[in-house]
């Protein structure tokens, strides 16, 4: 075991040189690289932490916004429901009003058609009856309905009660002339017969006018100012029209009948029986009906 002091000195120098070289080329660069990497990692961690905090803050904001939106959504939905409810009610009311209007128009049209139908039936019945009676009398009795009506008129004017006769005379005294209107054309002889019968009942000095015949009615009508005496089929035709009207009631009457039927069926049946009874009693005599009508007009 020996020590070479020159070698010792050389090794000391070698070691110091090596320490300096390693310090310069190994420890320094490696340590700095690690420190830079640590700093970079620390920076990234801090950035990640900051980003995470921002993300959490943003998440909280979004959560709050979502909660607000949810609350607002419920409010908007409630407003929309209320608006829809109001719109539905308004549309229902409009539709109901339109349906009512259409139904009223339809009813009015039905009533108009019904009235036209009843008027046409009344006219047809009057013309049919007159034609039938005229033809039957001409064929079987060699006379006409007009001649028979004129003779009957003359006879009944002569049998006027004193009240009616006085009313006619009063009208004449007031200067109101007499007008005899017929439902069909008459001959001159019949005109004379009618004029004579009326003058006999009222007075000879009375002026009597017999204008052209009218197609508005069947029979004879005597007018003196505001006084009128009818010997016509109008009352019979009116009853016939009433029966037809009963057979074809208006929509309102039909609804009323339906309501009554739902409440009690017996009342409707009795009304129908009365109608038939009236028809049978209608043929008793024209004169009394005519007098009732004259009294009513007076």
């Amino acid at each position: 075991m020996q020590i070479d002091w020159v070698t010792v000195a050389a090794q000391i120098v070698n070691f110091l040189v090596l320490a300096w070289l390693l310090h310069r080329f190994l420890y320094g660069p490696i340590t700095r690289a690690m420190e830079r990497r640590e700093n970079a990692i620390r920076t990234r961690i801090e950035e990640a932490e900051e980003t995470r905090e921002q993300a959490e803050a943003r998440a909280r904001e979004l959560e709050q916004e979502r909660a607000e939106l949810n609350a607002r959504r419920e409010e908007i939905l409630e407003e929309a429901r209320e608006e829809a409810r109001r719109l539905k009610d308004r549309l229902q009311q409009e539709a109901r009003a339109e349906v009512d209007e259409l139904r009223e128009a339809w009813r009015a049209e039905l009533d108009e058609d019904r009235n036209e139908f009843l008027a046409a039936m009344r006219t047809e019945a009057r013309e049919g009856f007159r034609t039938l009676a005229d033809d039957a009398l001409r064929a079987l009795a060699d006379t006409t309905l007009t001649e028979r009506m004129a003779e009957a008129f003359a006879a009944r004017v002569g049998d006027l009660d004193e009240v009616d006769a006085e009313r006619l005379r009063g009208a004449v005294r007031r200067g109101e002339g007499l007008v005899i209107t017929l439902g069909s054309d008459v001959s001159g002889a019949l005109r004379g017969t009618l004029t004579a019968a009326v003058r006999k009942a009222v007075g000879d000095e009375v002026e009597i006018d017999i204008p052209e015949s009218s197609d508005d009615f069947t029979g004879i009508r005597l007018k003196a100012g505001g006084e009128t005496l009818d010997w016509t089929l109008d009352a019979h035709l009116d009853r016939f029209a009433d029966r037809l009207a009963s057979a074809f009631p208006t929509e309102d009457a039909r609804e009323t009948q339906d309501d009554d039927a739902n409440g009690g069926r017996g009342a409707g049946d009795s009304t129908l029986g009365d109608s038939h009874g009236g028809t049978a009693a209608g043929g008793k005599g024209q004169a009394s009906d005519a007098r009732e009508g004259a009294a009513g007009d007076g």
Partner: peptide, 22 residues
């Protein structure tokens, strides 16, 4: 001598590796 020579070899290896990394 061999001590110094091999010391230099060791030093050269260490410094070479350090330079490569540097």
């Amino acid at each position: 001598n061999a001590t110094i020579l091999w010391t230099w070899v060791v030093m050269a290896i260490l410094v070479a590796i350090s330079l490569v990394v540097r």
